[in-house]
């Protein structure tokens, strides 16, 4: 984090505003439980929360890794086979816009409450932004550089590695900002729809038990996880692109 002060300010301002709202408006805890109450849940249920968080994180990361492998494969294919993108694009868009709550119930019926359906939901949600960014990034490769490599009789693969891939890296990293955090949300939604474990499941459970305090606690944990992932991507981005600031 480059600017710890503003970050810390926000970190303090949120619970402060929260507590202030409670003093001023005295909402029913069913709508807005006080921070202390939520903190209490976070502390007493910490081990269960951690366990469910790891479940969600595992699904998100694994699904995201799969999405990356697919997206990279697809992008490579599109790069090597001219016109492939135009043929694939409508199908990918269709795939992307599949209303996954409906797909989810089919998936869980076919595959049971296993890792599979959750991974598929994560892949469905994250695959497309990665691929779109990769394709876009690969196209920004310098045509003059590519011409020069062609006069060296570079192979298509070498052109990909030496010219197109470096050009696509900033786009690829930018995709992670959206897609990696998206993978967490996707995993949570999948669990919310049909799982028996994970943060998404805890959300359903807490809301059916009218435990707004736990609902807030789980939401808080999910936000922190998403923020950490976002920070991680930022860190990776700064590391990989440090030449830009040289």
């Amino acid at each position: 984090m480059k600017a710890p002060l503003p970050f810390l300010l926000v970190l303090l301002a949120v619970p402060a505003a929260w507590q202030l709202a409670i003093w001023c408006f005295e909402p029913k805890p069913a709508f807005l439980p006080p921070p202390a109450m939520v903190a209490g849940v976070l502390w007493t249920e910490r081990s269960a929360l951690l366990g469910h968080t790891l479940v969600t994180l595992g699904e998100a990361v694994l699904g995201y890794a799969i999405a990356n492998v697919f997206a990279l494969g697809c992008a490579l294919f599109c790069f090597h086979v001219g016109g492939a993108e135009r043929v694939l694009a409508p199908w990918l868009v269709a795939l992307k816009n599949v209303p996954f709550p409906t797909v989810a119930s089919i998936l869980v019926v076919v595959m049971g409450d296993s890792l599979g359906p959750k991974l598929i939901v994560v892949v469905l949600v994250t695959f497309f932004p990665i691929l779109a960014n990769l394709n876009k990034g690969l196209k920004t490769a310098d045509p003059v550089l590519i011409d020069r490599l062609r006069t060296l009789h570079a192979t298509r693969w070498q052109i990909f590695r030496k010219a197109a891939w470096p050009a696509a890296i900033p786009f690829y990293l930018a995709a992670h900002e959206i897609a990696f955090t998206g993978s967490i949300i996707a995993a949570i939604v999948a669990e919310w729809l049909f799982a028996q474990r994970g943060l998404g499941f805890l959300i359903v459970q807490a809301s059916t038990q009218f435990r707004t305090d736990r609902l807030f606690a789980v939401t808080l944990v999910a936000s922190v996880v998403a923020m950490l992932v976002y920070g991680l991507v930022g860190l990776a981005e700064r590391r990989v692109l440090r030449w830009q600031r040289a």
Partner: peptide
């Protein structure tokens, strides 16, 4: 490898 080329715009990899 008998040919070397250079164009108006330098064909350098920025990274």
């Amino acid at each position: 490898g008998a040919i070397g080329v250079a164009f108006q715009r330098p064909a350098l990899v920025p990274s």
